[in-house]
Amino acid sequence: MRTATQHTALLTARALRSVSRVPVFMVMNLVQPMLWLLLFGALFRSVVEIPGFGSDSTYLEFITPGIVMMTAMFGAAWAGTTFVQDMERGVMDRFLASPTSRGALMVASMACQAVIALAQALVVLGVAWLCGARFDGGLGGVGLLLLGVVLLTAIFSALSNAFALLTGQQEALIGLSQMITLPLMFLSSAIMDPRLSPAWVAEVARYNPFDWAVRLGRAALDGSAPASEILGPAALLAAATVIMAWVATRAFRARQKSV
């Protein structure tokens, strides 16, 4: 266990070093969420006036937690890129032929993605604040929202890494982004109050980890939501994180059988 923790720290440092050497990628990942935040925030400003839209805030305030989580999920979906690059070189084989902890390889990748996602979440929140969004949840609310960001990022980085290990192909990650994360974003309450969506969308959203994170974030920023609206989704996300990390680490074994 001590070895695994130490390996996690060493490998996380390696991953962050790599990110810090090409910071432009972090900025590029922010372009899309900024467009969503600023364009959607302006374009659909009057959506909140539709009868039944259960929010007394502005539309910008409504979608900010959704955009924060979207940034986290979309970024994490590409986490496996590093694994693919390590596999294309002999770096992954070298790690696997050495006593490097498999769990540490997985958790380090998740941790590095979480750090990136936290920085990006703070940027999105800052831009929303500059555009006039105000949240009653205060710093405590922001802290809880960031917890959701970390857990959501962990889930989708583990999924992305598992895809990378099983296929060894960057194309598989494109598939993950297009076929899984994008639909998950629309099958949630990120940009529309579920009470105004078809009933089946609201039903699907109940099983959607992305929606758990959005609901957690919105309740946390709202400040007046009952604790269960935060703790419930947080518990689900934490459970999903543990399960996904375990499943993804098992993918090392599947790879060992197939190579």
Binding site: T3, Q6, H7, L10, L11, R14, R17, S18, R21, V22, D86, E88, R89, G90, V91, D93, R94, F95, A97, S98, P99, T100
Partner: peptide, 28 residues
């Protein structure tokens, strides 16, 4: 065991020294 694959086994985004130190630490 030590293993040198037919492909490059070092991380191009780290320095030579960082590669060696990380490999040594992962080996204990």
């Amino acid at each position: 065991n030590g293993y040198v694959a037919p492909r490059p086994v070092t991380d191009p985004r780290d320095t030579g020294r960082e590669n060696l130190v990380l490999a040594g630490r992962l080996q204990g």
